[in-house]
């Protein structure tokens, strides 16, 4: 079941100039939210913004009835959202899309930049099943891996940075523990990173899920604007994804 409803901002945290998170509270019990699902967020009072902004759900607290969004400021809409403060209202259409399947006994979660967002809720979901995932986060430098301190309780945390300011220097696929006998990989981040991770997984015969990001209008599979070219034709990222199995995206991965 999907809902359209107002939340109240009850928390805000920022990482540098680019990333911030909002904690949003609802007066009623939240519906189940699968890791990898997203919300279509209304941007109010911004004359240059017409459409909602699709933002993945970063964290869910079923005790406090809160959701968290981790947002990268990329344009007018997200810049406007960055001005929200505690007490402000925010209208969401949620939970949308198909999330991660929670497969594997030894999962590896690979995130880059804003793509780390859905991996927190994902890591918590694995932990709730008694599985502690390995979480590999990458970025150009330490300050471009947002919210990383939040992951520590929910897995074995590894980092790579381009400049070596945190963890190992290099790309996520070059990390010394990247190929450590995992039986499932979940990845979300920049397209070249996800392609490299998925290519590796396909070559090694490891199952792999990717969380894609495309420009969207409706977020619910009505407008068909956000399509990805899968091996069997165009598929809606908003409804059939955003999480896709790598096996159906081999053409996209090998582009």
């Amino acid at each position: 079941m999907k809902y359209i409803t107002d939340f109240t901002v009850v928390g805000r945290e920022a990482w540098g100039e680019t990333y911030f998170s909002l904690t949003l509270q609802h007066p009623q019990t939240l519906p189940p939210v699968a890791a990898g699902q997203f919300a279509e967020v209304e941007v109010q009072d911004c004359r240059e913004v017409t459409l909602r902004r699709p933002i993945s759900i970063h964290d869910v607290d079923t005790v406090r009835n809160t959701l968290s969004l981790l947002v990268q400021i990329v344009g007018k809409g997200t810049r406007k959202l960055a001005t929200l403060r505690e007490g402000d209202k925010l209208n969401l259409v949620y939970p949308l899309g198909r999330g991660f399947a929670l497969r594997g006994e030894r999962p590896l979660l690979v995130g880059g930049g804003a793509g780390v967002a859905p991996l927190l809720h994902l890591a918590k979901c694995y932990c709730a099943r008694g599985i502690r995932p390995t979480i590999l986060l990458g970025g150009r430098s330490a300050d471009l891996i947002p919210a990383r301190e939040r992951f520590a309780p929910y897995g074995t945390l590894l980092y790579t940075t381009d400049d070596g300011s945190l963890g190992e220097r290099g790309l996520v696929t070059q990390h010394s523990h990247f190929d450590d006998g995992y039986d499932h990989i979940c990845t979300c981040g920049p397209t070249p990173m996800m392609r490299a991770v998925a290519r590796h997984a396909l070559q090694q015969g490891i199952s792999c899920e990717l969380s894609l990001e495309n420009m969207m209008a409706c977020g619910i599979g009505a407008c068909l604007c956000c399509v990805v070219k899968s091996d069997d034709g165009h598929r809606c990222v908003c409804k059939e994804g955003p999480v896709f199995d790598a096996t159906g995206l081999s053409q996209w991965i090998n582009q």
Partner: peptide
């Protein structure tokens, strides 16, 4: 029909452009 290639949508002031192409 598969429709047109992505990107098929662009937000504009008080509106949007689409080029879904009858998928």
């Amino acid at each position: 029909r598969q429709g047109n290639d992505y990107p098929r949508m662009a937000e504009t002031p008080a509106g949007m452009l689409n080029a879904v192409g009858l998928q």
